[in-house]
Design a protein around this nucleic acid. Sequence first.
DNA 1: GTCGTAATGGCACTGCAGTGTCATAAACCT
DNA 2: AGGTTTATGACACTGCAGTGCCATTACGAC
Lengths: 224, 224
Amino acid sequence: MSTTNSNRYSHTGLQEGRGNQKLRTRRALLVTAAELIASGRRPTVAEVADAAHVSRRTAYRYFPTQLKLMAEAALEGLRPTMEGTLESAPKGTTVGAIEARIDALVEQMQRLALSNENLLRTMIHETVLHPPGNTRPSRGTRRIEWIEAATQPLRARLGAAAHARLVSALSLTMGIEALLVLRDIRGLSAAQAVQISHWMARALLKQSLAERQAEQRRSRSKPA
Amino acid sequence: MSTTNSNRYSHTGLQEGRGNQKLRTRRALLVTAAELIASGRRPTVAEVADAAHVSRRTAYRYFPTQLKLMAEAALEGLRPTMEGTLESAPKGTTVGAIEARIDALVEQMQRLALSNENLLRTMIHETVLHPPGNTRPSRGTRRIEWIEAATQPLRARLGAAAHARLVSALSLTMGIEALLVLRDIRGLSAAQAVQISHWMARALLKQSLAERQAEQRRSRSKPA
DNA sequence: GTCGTAATGGCACTGCAGTGTCATAAACCT
DNA sequence: AGGTTTATGACACTGCAGTGCCATTACGAC
């Protein structure tokens, strides 16, 4: 997953051995797999290896199972679209600014999920099993980080517990799972599903603020 | 199981030909598969067939792919727990009664999802792929029917559109997908996840009612 | 250049999904 | 009893996942 390099290797020599060769092979496999998945196919390991001009045996050296290859390839396919999502969000700590950030986040997440549906469905397919009591990488926490970043000023206003609760609730309103339920089970169109996500996110935010107000009113009228 | 008894079935005669024999074989495969899945395994078709005392070839005659066997077996495994969920819910059309029904529904759904996690994860694994533009059975609509039944009186109070929106939103707050996100991604415990579902459902209900009130106030003060 | 070693490729193997073909046994009918 | 139909079983096959073993290439150090 996290390629722990990002520093130059030519003058430092920190990249011991033939590290770059490995990185190139690994990356070739990932982008090739991502392309094949995004095109709607469900490629075999042999197909990915061939398309990446790598032997099947080598592919298995980098990704011990097709599952891991697919899961990482899905992430790889998303990476380009992901960056720049948060930067463009409005700043500020007012409720209005927070609401705007949440709106933008929902919009971006659902747009991303829609345009990478095959990739994300594959990822769920690959990660949904065996999770009883294991220590799997499971799924990333990017969604949580984004939501926390967008709602960060609310932590002081709502308190840690209520803020954490809001973050949890918001994590259900966006992402591929929401799309999955709204479309596959509820039978909505993509546009309708996105609307629901927007409404839910705002509703949960408003409700969190309203509960906080009620709590304050209560403690003012009858201080402990 | 494979009671090859000689109990005659001819007194009804409704089942044309050897229909009962087929039903028994089919059911034996389903319950056997459900048991194996529920026990945490991911059984081979050969394993299911063996355990059901049926030849592998016959298993494939009833379920053309392992996927279909698993998906139907998951439903089979849930059937016993499902019935009696709605009957015990409180009646009435007051907001309080509706709130109580939603609470009970959330509680039941999440309890069901938790105690059949393996089954449901398998079902998602099997149904999440290929659904772009196809006519798959996909997933059932029981969840939607339950939510609609619980919130039915709100349709008159909120209007059809707002009620449909609430139903959609509530469908995201309960079920295996919610549990999946809250636990696998958000990292909550089972108990915490259920709490979030409860809070969300109530919050969305309150917000729907609040928006309706605001709308009415607006139209009273400035009638069109 | 030479040498050592790390990355890669080739090949053969096992295990399971899925299918086709034919044989067998049980049910049905007369 | 007979004969016919039908579910089932036995066997062999293909395709892909995954692995072990060994050969070959190519990088890097001397």
